[in-house]
């Protein structure tokens, strides 16, 4: 659909774009970036604590890493259920979205939200509405990488 400018206005598309660009506030880049750095760094630091803890139980590095990821997913999921994750994320931005806490939040928030539409047709089938893209594109990437490596290298 082509844009349609009201005939009574002298306004041109270009002028409109200039006006909106001038008036629309830009996000506070530096502030947001610092908050994301600190909050994301903190999550990873907590993750490292957990990882060292699991390693001290005698888990291998891979096992400790998996256990850490699962624990962090549990925390993200629980905070979503308690209704505080979205409040934290409104402040932290990418700081909570980029670590697996964001993955957990996308799964749990969708499951929670569509619970009212049924256990099967809502909660279960809608769980991956947000996180599905991450899994699909990750799998496709891994598939392509695997094919290239095993056929050509």
């Amino acid at each position: 659909m082509a844009p349609r400018i009201p005939s009574r206005l002298k306004l041109t598309q270009q002028e409109f774009d200039q006006i909106t660009q001038k008036i629309t506030p830009r996000p506070p880049l530096a502030r947001n970036a610092v908050i994301a750095f600190l909050s994301g760094g903190l999550i990873c630091l907590i993750g490292q604590l957990l990882q060292n803890l699991y390693a001290s139980f005698g888990y291998s590095t891979q096992e400790a890493s998996s256990a850490t990821v699962s624990t962090v997913i549990f925390i993200g999921s629980l905070l979503t259920g308690l209704g505080v994750f979205d409040q934290i994320a409104r402040f932290a931005g990418a700081g909570t979205a980029v670590p697996v806490t964001g993955f957990a939040n996308s799964l749990t928030s969708a499951a929670l939200e569509f619970k009212k539409e049924g256990l099967v047709t809502g909660l279960s089938s809608k769980m991956f509405t947000l996180a599905g893209s991450v899994i699909v594109l990750g799998v496709v990437t891994a598939f392509v990488a695997g094919i290239i490596k095993s056929l050509f290298l």
Binding site: T80, G83, D86, Q87, F91, A94, G102, T108, S109, L130
Partner: peptide, 17 residues
Amino acid sequence: ERQYRYPTEYGFKRPPH
């Protein structure tokens, strides 16, 4: 919010506009 954007508990930073 749940119809037009995201589940209500989904966390993201709203732009100032």
